[in-house]
Design a protein around this nucleic acid. Structure first.
Length: 649
DNA sequence: AAAAAAT
């Protein structure tokens, strides 16, 4: 039968302390600014703010595009860093668990060690891409000599582990492998260990501590972890390591131009795919494992050429991948690892058919043969149900407190009428500027609802002396990438974005996320604010709320409450009003503990209503719904039920 | 109702 384990540094009290604030984490704007290290400006060239809409007073810091210099070191976009940890870790290898899972044997069976080398494969894996062709692997760390100093942005490589110390973790499923405390405990292989050192990761983040052993044991995984907590490495390390350790076998020779990746990583936006690709390239440097990215909006020919040079790990957005599959440029029949990042988004209405096509209707090995890993910060139970089609005897892992937003993000909500939003935003920006909290070291990300709205606001901000740019789906891919570069580098310290930028993007120095227009879905809110407060750093999120946002009032109030945020009385009144009048979102209920394994509360719910069910209870009752204490859930009935909200109703 | 994702 299934059993549940709760890992926590403070296991027996985590339930009762979820309301405590980690006080050392809390910081003011000024502190935020001060703690942001100088960022070297890189990308020059135009953002759409400059030339056309030039104007205005007070833009002292703003340098028009044609005057911007372009520093010599233009190479590494990869230097954009994310992820955790500094320092080094020993390389000791402890007992190897390799080949432990049935799936690890998959690649050994049959062909074992086939030396047919149809495509330069014999023996050394890596598709022969850097052998025999004279190709040289570009150093993704962007440092020519030694890695030590070139990566000098210490500040943003350091994850604040204190912030994660007492984080509650829930796992469920059969035979859950225990977590590890150091990278050294895991046998990832020397090449990968060296890259971990180059990335200055000292020790694994909580999600990594748990997810990596699970994956290495060959198990399928559904993982729910806070934004900014190191998920990418959590699924990349086992994949890379597994590919290195696996016997290489010849790819089928069919269609000389068809390539056969061993791992597939899917993500919902092009920019996120790019980011994952860059990370994965760093992790696989000099391992012989080759990572290729494919996404729409960019010339397919370049991507095809890249693929033909060999691919072990393919990172892609769904549309472009389907295209490649239909052209028979890519076959999935050798896939051993499948990872879906932002998995709940990948399986929601817009994406599900495409994902099903890729995963179920092409030539990918079925669950149980391949290994599947799903990651997201939010995991609605309905989506969990869909996702279970892709998994085999999987382990559910939830890391982090309430709703995957963190105490690291100070959330504010302000009542702002629609007509006042612009001037209110301007007030905020002026205040930031006055505090010195704005500019290259301190970025502001503004979310709006529509693409047109994004353009309009960007233009207006520029007119008013605040250099801004915008990213949304109506812009060309070039423009999107340019906007992101310009924002990242601080040349344009304000980015107006639609939800295309809501998920996954790791942009250091985002100090402030403004929800100019609130989303209708609380999960989208969680992802949006997760663009700040990353890698253990603090951040600020401000939301403009008005009568158009009543549908999110309840879940927003719940979320803020559970994240130890002050909830304004007026918001509680909106929440109370909409609570029973159907203010429920398409798929979510409200209260939350990130998520819990839907397999575990199926017995509790009758209509499959709310995936978080116990969520709002968790912090309120001390009965502890987790350790399987009976009644933890039943009482109060989650949402729209009775008695749940008594603490602050 | 909107956004994203192939051409």
């Amino acid at each position: 039968m299934e059993f549940v384990v709760i890992w926590s540094g403070l296991a027996n009290i985590f339930f009762f302390c979820t309301r405590e604030r980690v006080s050392t984490m809390r910081t003011s704007w000024a502190d935020l600014a001060a703690s942001s290290a100088a960022e070297n400006v890189a990308a020059g060239s135009a953002n759409n703010c400059g030339a056309g809409t030039t104007t205005a007073p007070g833009r002292s810091a703003y340098v028009p595009p044609h005057l911007r210099n372009r520093p010599a070191s233009s190479d590494p976009p990869a230097a954009a860093n994310s992820g955790p940890a500094v320092g080094s870790d020993r390389s000791g290898h402890v007992g190897s668990r390799w080949g432990g899972g049935p799936r690890n044997d998959y690649n050994r069976s049959g062909y074992s060690g086939g030396s047919r080398g149809g495509s330069g494969w014999g023996g050394s894996r890596g598709g022969g891409w850097d052998r025999g062709r004279g190709d040289r692997e570009v150093n993704p760390f962007g440092d020519e000599e030694d890695t030590e100093e070139a990566f000098g942005e210490q500040e943003n490589t350091g994850i604040n582990f204190d912030a994660y110390e007492d984080i509650p973790v829930e796992t469920s499923g059969e035979n859950v492998p225990p977590p590890v405390n150091t990278f050294a405990e895991i046998d990832l292989g020397e090449a990968l260990n060296q890259n971990i050192r180059r990335c200055k990761y000292v020790k694994p983040t909580p999600v990594q501590r748990h997810a990596i052993p699970i994956s290495l044991a060959g198990r399928d995984l559904m993982a729910c972890a806070q934004t900014g907590s190191g998920k990418t490495a959590a699924f990349c390390f086992p994949i890379i390591s597994g590919i290195m350790k696996g016997q290489s076998m010849p790819r089928p020779a069919r269609g000389a131009r068809t390539v056969y990746p061993l791992a597939l990583i899917l993500s919902p936006t092009r920019e996120l795919s790019m980011q994952i690709h860059e990370e994965a390239r760093k992790f696989s440097y000099q391992t012989g494992v080759r990572v290729v990215v494919a996404y729409g909006g960019a010339p397919i020919n370049l991507q095809l050429r890249d693929l033909e040079r060999g691919v072990d790990i393919l990172v892609a957005t769904p549309g472009r991948l389907v295209d490649l599959l239909e052209r028979a440029k890519v076959s999935l029949q050798m896939i051993r690892y499948l990872a879906l990042d932002e998995a709940d988004r990948m399986l929601d209405m817009g994406f599900e058919p495409q994902i099903r096509k890729i995963v179920e209707q092409m030539d990918m090995p079925p669950p149980g043969v391949r290994q599947t890993m799903l990651f997201s910060a939010t995991f609605p139970r309905e989506i969990q149900r869909l996702a279970s089609d892709f998994l085999s005897s999987y382990i559910f892992l939830a890391v982090g407190r309430v709703g995957s937003s963190t105490d690291l993000i100070a959330q504010r909500v302000e009542f702002v009428h629609e007509s006042d939003k612009r001037s209110h935003l301007l007030d905020l920006l002026h205040a930031q500027r006055a505090n010195g909290v704005q500019g290259k070291q301190s970025l502001t990300l503004v979310f709006v609802e529509t693409k047109k709205g994004a353009d309009a606001l960007e233009h207006w901000l520029c007119l008013n002396g605040f250099p801004a740019t915008t990213i949304h789906g109506d812009r060309t891919q070039q423009e999107r990438e340019q906007a992101l570069r310009s924002f990242r580098s601080g040349n344009t310290p304000i980015l107006v974005a639609t939800d295309v930028a809501a998920r996954g993007l790791d942009i250091p120095h985002v100090a402030h996320v403004v929800n100019f227009d609130l989303p209708n879905d609380i999960d989208d809110y969680v992802h949006r604010i997760g663009r700040t407060g990353r890698a253990g750093k603090t951040g600020l999120a401000t939301a403009f709320f008005n009568e158009n946002n009543t549908s999110i009032a309840r879940s927003l109030a719940d979320l803020m409450h559970e994240s130890n945020q002050e909830v304004p009385d007026w918001l509680l009144r909106f929440a109370a009003r909409s609570a029973y009048s159907g203010g429920r979102n398409r798929r979510s209920g409200g209260g939350r503990f990130g998520s819990r394994d839907y397999r575990r509360d199926s017995s509790f719910n009758r209509g499959g209503s709310d995936y978080y069910s116990g969520g709002s209870n968790n912090n309120n009752n001390s009965g502890g719904g987790y350790g399987g204490v009976s009644g933890g859930y039943g009482g109060g009935g989650g949402y729209g039920g009775s008695g749940v909200t008594s603490a602050w109703d």
